[in-house]
């Protein structure tokens, strides 16, 4: 549990950070909250030669509203999300989810950028970003680009980030007023990754589901957008048969690993239950 040797850098601007990452090359890793990287380093599963600590970059912090979009700086912590009035008002599902991430000490340190950029299938925010239709701003030496969350994840710890690129902010379109939302997470204890979790964002019209997005956490190598499951509930009043249909459609795309949280069969089964419960709770909140 003792990391190997590494060099430490603390740039003050995004430009400096990008310059460092590009000159230092493949052996450099950006450091945000460190909740994934530091334990990996202590186990020597990750042995970066250079750590580029982003905590000195003021431009990577903060939450701002740009028209119908909320833009969150990558180094914004889970705690800052919870403390933000803007998030509470327009994206309450972020609060609900952040509160399910470990404990206050972790949330003081853990960042949204690190959570979504790392590509860890156990992280909670990526599924949420898919359900909300968010996009990520990736900046590199050759400029900036926007990538949709739904296009970002390629495999466990594999993402659309190119070498030398930094995820600098997250842009989330504000869901319509009166939308329903829920993040259902089954975990063994505080601080655990999800055994299975489902995010639902929907709108209702006349007692029936008008629009719906469902996304899943830790049920595959990447977060999943459960499109067939969402389709199955559009136009329904979420009767028991429809809920079962949605759960079955979601389970069909799940491919979790067997681990100490349970065998594959169990994790898929409770994945379906999380979908049903999230749908019901989201519908109950919609107006």
């Amino acid at each position: 549990m003792i990391p190997g040797p590494f060099n430490y850098y603390r740039p003050a601007t995004v430009a400096d950070a990008l310059k460092l990452l590009s000159t230092l090359g493949d052996e450099a890793r950006p450091l945000a909250g460190g909740h994934s990287l530091v334990p990996m380093m202590k186990l020597r599963l990750a042995t970066p030669e250079h750590l580029v600590d982003l905590h000195g970059v003021a431009d990577l912090k903060g939450i701002r509203r740009e028209g119908n979009t909320v833009v969150i700086g990558a180094m914004t912590t889970q705690h800052e999300l919870l403390a933000s009035d803007e998030i509470g008002r327009s994206l309450p599902i972020l609060d609900e989810t952040a509160l399910l991430i470990a404990d206050p000490q972790v949330r003081y340190r853990g960042t949204i950028g690190g959570n979504v950029a790392n590509g860890d299938p156990g992280n909670d925010m990526p599924a949420l970003m898919m359900a909300l239709g968010a996009s990520y701003r990736l900046e590199g030496k050759s400029g900036a680009r926007e990538v949709a969350a739904s296009e970002f994840y390629q495999g466990a710890y594999f993402t659309a980030l190119e070498p030398g690129e930094l995820l600098t902010s997250v842009a989330i379109p504000v869901p319509s007023a009166g939308h329903g939302y829920a993040y259902e997470k089954l975990k063994r204890k505080v601080g655990d990754y999800a055994t299975a979790a489902a995010a639902v964002v929907l709108t209702m019209a006349g007692g029936k589901v008008a629009t719906c997005k469902i996304a899943l956490t830790n049920l595959s190598e990447t977060p999943l957008l459960a499109e067939d499951a969402a389709k199955a509930v559009i136009g329904t009043s979420l009767d028991p048969a429809t809920l079962k249909k949605a759960a079955a459609a979601a389970e069909a795309i799940m491919s979790p690993a067997a681990d100490a949280r349970g065998p594959v069969e169990y994790r898929k089964h409770v994945g379906g239950i999380m979908v049903m419960r999230a749908l019901q709770r989201a519908a109950g909140r919609a107006s």
């Binding site: 063994r188 204890k189 505080v190 601080g191 681990d259 100490a260």
Partner: peptide, 15 residues
């Protein structure tokens, strides 16, 4: 397979 507090159940005050 249960060699850390992630998988070796050590309850917190919450549980």
């Amino acid at each position: 397979v249960t060699g850390s507090f992630m998988d070796f159940f050590m309850p917190t005050a919450v549980e």
